[in-house]
Structures are given as structure tokens and as C-alpha cells.
């Protein structure tokens, strides 16, 4: 609709993935617009405002840190807070990307009924919350490492080339979150069951992924659970790369393949059902 004097047609056919992507790229300025809207959604009607952006992850971590680190006392090679925060640096953005991208259509009902723009922009731009969380949790992680450097005189994040595996593992995880978000975004527009389901699934998934306890524990007692879980690979690679462990890149193969499939199917699903969904929001 932006091309001058160009001919356009409207037909009752569903969009293809490539059409969605091309259209979204033509309107890429809107990513910033809806990312901003989404960030405001987090702090809307709060009196503490941006403080919540920071305190959300902190208040989420503290009880887990106490329970797993000081009550259950799992044996880790390094101080538990460092180990835990490294895991959280990947888990929390994953959690948030899935959750907020699923709310893409739901949170923009009003404007969707009055203006047309490529809707795929909504779930994708909502990933901004996850990216903000990488920064926030990243800073908390650096702070933790710094504190233990002073306490123990040892830097737990060695500078080496294997560090580059960390962003790759992160991308695999966030890609999976976005792929799931594309499915749940359509579902959430139809019913709120989707949002409740996400919270429940994430809760279970968090406990079944070795974030707050050692990977070896899961591998020793329930290896099948570890290998089926598409987050096991990314989290192991991510943490090993960050904390100077031995990196096993092959662990990323299965998750990467799965992420690609979920992402493509998610795009397809969204492109197919987005238009009929708007009539019902």
C-alpha cells in the first residue's frame, strides 16, 4: 500500500512466508514502534516504572538462588551464584521472548482493527523485552563474577575464542522461543488459555533444564530427559563457553535443527492464520 500509483490487489488467499517477510522488511521502521509499545506495556500503570524492568529478573532469581544454592546445596565446580547466573543469562531471555512475543496480537487489538501493517512485525518486535533482559541479566552476571573475583581472586569467565559459542547457543534458544511465540501469538489472540499455558510450560521446562542444578546430575539420573530437551544443548554449550568449561558443539546440532523447523513452521502458521485472527480479536 505504500507504492505510488502502483496497482494492488486484495484476494481471499492466505499469505506465504516469503510475502510476510518481504512486507515486514518494507515496513521495518515499525519494528521500533512496536518494540517501544511493548516496553511500555511492561511498565504501564506501575508507579515504579522502569525499576520493574530490572527488578523483574532479580525478584525471580533470588528465591531460586537461596533454594538451590543454600538449602539444597548442589555441588558445582564454581560458586553456585556464578553457575546459576550464567544459566539464567540464557534462560530468562528465552522465557521472556516466548512470553512477550505470544502477546503480540493480544496487546495490540485496538490498532489491529483500525490500521493495516504486516502483523508479523508484532511478535518479532516484542522480542525486545528478551533483548533488554540480556542486558540486565548480563550486567547482574558480570556483577556476580566481579564479586567472586574479589572474594576468591579468581576470574570465572576466561577470555578465549570458545566464548564465541555463547552467542550462537543463545541464538538457537531465542530462535526457538520466537518460533513458539509465533504459534502462541495466534492462539493467545483467540483465548487467554495460551498465556496461562505458557507460564505452566515454562515453569516445568525451567525445572527440567539444568539451570539451577548441575548438568551432570540430570545426565546421570535421567539422560533421556536431558537429550530430548532442546534447551539442554544450548544451555550446556552456553555455560561451558562462558565459564571456561569444555565446549561440546555437537550438542547444538539437534536444538539448531529443531529451532529451524519450529521457526519456519511458526512463520507459516502465523502467516496463514493471522488474517482470520484479526476478525476475531
Amino acid at each position: 500500500m505504500s507504492m505510488n500509483q502502483a496497482e494492488w490487489t486484495i484476494r481471499p488467499v492466505m499469505r506465504t512466508v516469503s510475502q510476510s517477510i518481504v512486507e515486514a522488511w518494507q515496513n521495518r521502521r515499525l519494528f521500533g514502534y512496536f518494540a517501544r509499545e511493548c516496553r511500555k506495556l511492561v511498565t504501564r500503570r506501575t508507579s515504579l516504572g522502569n525499576f520493574w524492568l530490572v527488578s523483574r529478573p532479580v525478584s525471580h532469581f533470588l528465591p531460586h538462588l537461596l533454594l538451590f544454592g543454600y538449602v539444597l546445596r548442589f555441588e558445582t565446580e564454581m560458586p553456585f551464584p556464578v553457575y546459576f547466573m550464567a544459566g539464567m543469562l540464557m534462560w530468562y531471555p528465552f522465557d521472556q521472548v516466548w512470553f512477550w512475543s505470544s502477546r503480540g496480537i493480544d496487546a495490540n487489538r485496538k490498532i489491529l482493527q483500525k490500521l493495516y501493517f504486516p502483523r508479523i512485525i508484532l511478535p518479532v518486535s516484542h522480542c525486545i523485552i528478551g533483548l533488554i533482559d540480556i542486558l540486565i541479566v548480563g550486567m547482574l552476571f558480570i556483577g556476580t563474577v566481579f564479586v567472586f573475583w574479589i572474594l576468591t581472586g579468581y576470574i570465572y569467565v576466561p577470555l578465549r575464542w570458545e566464548l564465541l559459542w555463547a552467542p550462537l547457543a543463545m541464538m538457537v534458544a531465542l530462535g526457538l522461543a520466537l518460533g513458539l511465540g509465533l504459534f502462541f501469538c495466534v492462539w493467545a489472540a483467540h483465548s487467554r488459555d495460551a498465556i496461562f499455558s505458557i507460564r505452566i510450560i515454562l515453569q516445568a521446562w525451567y525445572l527440567l533444564t539444568p539451570i539451577a542444578y548441575p548438568s551432570d546430575l540430570l545426565l546421570a539420573r535421567a539422560p533421556l530427559l536431558a537429550y530430548v530437551n532442546p534447551l539442554f544443548g544450548p544451555i550446556s554449550v552456553f555455560r561451558d563457553a562462558l565459564l571456561g568449561g569444555e565446549v561440546h558443539p555437537l550438542l547444538l546440532v539437534y536444538p539448531a535443527v529443531l529451532t529451524t523447523i519450529v521457526l519456519l513452521l511458526g512463520l507459516r502458521f502465523f502467516s496463514l492464520y493471522e488474517r482470520d485472527t484479526i476478525d476475531m480479536v
Partner: peptide
């Protein structure tokens, strides 16, 4: 709404020429 692409048709075709600006509500966005 269909002309503005907010909603999609069940049947039929629309062919148009030129830029469309739709004002289904003033001040939207």
C-alpha cells in the same frame, strides 16, 4: 475494513491503483 486490508474478503477480488490511506479512526497509533 477490507479496502484498508484490516480485514480480508471471503470471496471476490479488489484491484486498486495508487496509495491508500485509511482513516478508520482518527488518531489511531
Amino acid at each position: 475494513k477490507i479496502l484498508a486490508r484490516v480485514s480480508s474478503p471471503t470471496n471476490g477480488v479488489i484491484v486498486g491503483r495508487g496509495r491508500v490511506v485509511s482513516l478508520l479512526e482518527l488518531g489511531m497509533g
